[in-house]
């Protein structure tokens, strides 16, 4: 069953097209990584899902309900953490967490205290004294202390230090283990790589790539570093070989996944002394997508 379904959703603000036929499905129980640079439409998509913005065209549902019509029903089962957490300067963090919990419908005191300790947040401080990271902790504690079935997390860790990011990752792993669904928008790719079952890349308001990390990697190139007994002269002209760079005693290059067998076969004729291979990181993947698209658009 799909928890989130967006079909051909467009959203325009005046002349600016923020979403341009976005298709997105998030399955029950998975952690879905939603990646793209600033301004690609991640937050707009999430605010459409929350019923804050009305989609210009297309349909969007959560738990099979319309996100605009049935917003309140949906929100009872959803926890939302924005990237920019704006809180009331005159309230304390503790008050805000309780307020959020009661607006949601249920308060888990024990879990709240446990999360406060894990995130090392002092709930008696006024929100005006909190840093960006601490405001994010308030929203995260409120979210993970609820018994939501779907977590909409919009760049939730942009202000957290590495230790707190680790706590956040544990929390995501825990809710996943409980069978809950997470939509994690981010541009911190290592985080997405570590946590997500599936990844969607958004660019200019549309999803340009979507699948498991393995699937996405399959479409792309491995990075190889080789040293051979016999020097290779014609490497750059081989099929499936890209970005050839000489090193001290050999070469570094990228190889297409589907040409890998042929390339290895050829290489072995030159007497391999040393070979290292690295799978493409999400970052490579992401950069390649963007660079290619920018190039193709420029042409």
């Amino acid at each position: 069953m799909n928890v989130i379904e967006m079909n051909q959703v467009t959203k325009t603000f005046g002349k600016h097209q923020a979403l341009d036929g976005l298709d997105l499905t998030v399955k029950n129980g998975e952690v879905f990584g939603f990646i793209g640079p600033n301004g690609a439409g991640k937050s707009t998509a999430i605010r459409v899902l929350l019923g804050m913005l009305r989609a210009t065209e297309g349909t969007a549902t959560i738990f099979g309900k319309d996100v605009w019509q049935d917003a309140v029903d949906i929100h009872r089962r959803v926890a939302y953490v924005p990237g920019d957490v704006n809180l009331w300067p005159q309230l304390t963090g503790g008050e805000v967490i309780d307020l959020f919990a009661s607006l949601q419908g249920n308060v888990h005191q024990q879990r709240r205290e446990e999360l406060l300790a894990r995130f090392q947040l002092d709930p008696t401080k006024k929100c005006r004294t909190y840093s960006k990271g601490n405001r994010q902790k308030v929203a995260l504690v409120a979210a993970f202390a609820s018994d939501a079935e779907l977590f909409l997390l919009d760049e939730p860790t942009s202000g957290l230090d590495p230790l707190m990011e680790k706590v956040f990752q544990q929390c995501v792993a825990e809710v996943k283990a409980e069978g809950k669904t997470v939509l994690l928008s981010s541009h911190i790719l290592s985080e997405v790589e570590r946590l997500c079952d599936r990844v969607g890349i958004i660019r200019q308001g549309r999803l340009i790539e979507c699948g498991t990390l393995d699937e996405l990697r399959h479409l792309t190139r491995m990075q190889l570093t080789v040293e051979t007994r016999i020097p290779i002269e014609s490497l750059a002209s081989w099929q499936g070989v890209h970005d050839v760079v000489p090193t001290e005693a050999g070469w570094t290059f990228h190889a297409d996944a589907d040409e890998m067998e042929a390339i290895m076969h050829k290489l072995s004729a030159y007497g391999i002394r040393k070979i290292e291979s690295a799978p493409p990181t999400l970052e490579d993947l992401f950069m390649r997508h963007y660079e290619e698209n920018v190039e193709s658009r420029d042409v």
């Binding site: 009331w88 503790g94 309780d98 307020l99 008696t124």
Partner: peptide
Amino acid sequence: PSRSGRAHASVILRHPIGLAWRL
């Protein structure tokens, strides 16, 4: 002086109108 705060929300604050009043 800005007063130091409470760790928990009062009963009033647990409703939208309570929040609006508090503000």
